[in-house]
């Protein structure tokens, strides 16, 4: 079960969030924005903690791999950072298979419906009905 999809821009601002289940507690938009900003910060810090990357080869603080997943009792989140710094997050129930594939598909839809839309301003909230519709179809297919 996929509970929600978030998209966070490279400055840490939430540009898209949508719930796909009714068990997720409804939060005011401001609370979700703060949560997304915090998640962005944690992702950045965990990236700097990364011991697997050789510290000498690091050119900047960004070279490490940040947090990829978090888990709690019965639910969790999967984080995926695109090459351009945009983060895609799904909140899901545990166990859940095929999350990586799902995130790639979400990214594909994002590349098509958002980046190829002349009425979208980069780094600004996503306001594309096409993106929402295609995402809805994708998630509905996973949730059944």
């Amino acid at each position: 079960m996929i509970h929600a999809v978030w998209v966070i821009n490279k400055a840490g601002g939430l540009v898209f969030n949508r719930s796909y289940s009714d068990v997720l507690p409804p939060l005011p938009l401001n609370a979700v924005l703060i949560l997304a900003g915090t998640l962005h910060g944690i992702h950045a810090i965990t990236g700097r903690l990364d011991p697997t990357t050789n510290s000498k080869s690091r050119s900047g603080p960004s070279s490490g791999q940040g947090m990829e997943a978090f888990e709690a009792e019965g639910w969790g989140g999967r984080v995926w950072l695109s090459g351009t710094g945009t983060k895609f997050i799904v909140l899901h129930s545990i166990p859940h298979s095929g999350l990586d594939e799902l995130l790639r598909r979400i990214y594909e839809i994002y590349a098509d419906a958002v980046m190829k839309n002349p009425f979208h301003t980069p780094e600004m909230p996503i306001n594309s009905s096409l993106f929402e519709t295609r995402l809805q179809t994708l998630i509905a297919g996973v949730n059944t």
Binding site: A11, G37, A44, G60, S62, G83, T84, P122
Partner: peptide, 15 residues
């Protein structure tokens, strides 16, 4: 949280 944690490669389709 200033974008400096992130790779500064420009968005190819940006702008």
């Amino acid at each position: 949280m200033d974008g400096s944690y992130y790779p500064s490669n420009p968005l190819p389709q940006s702008s």
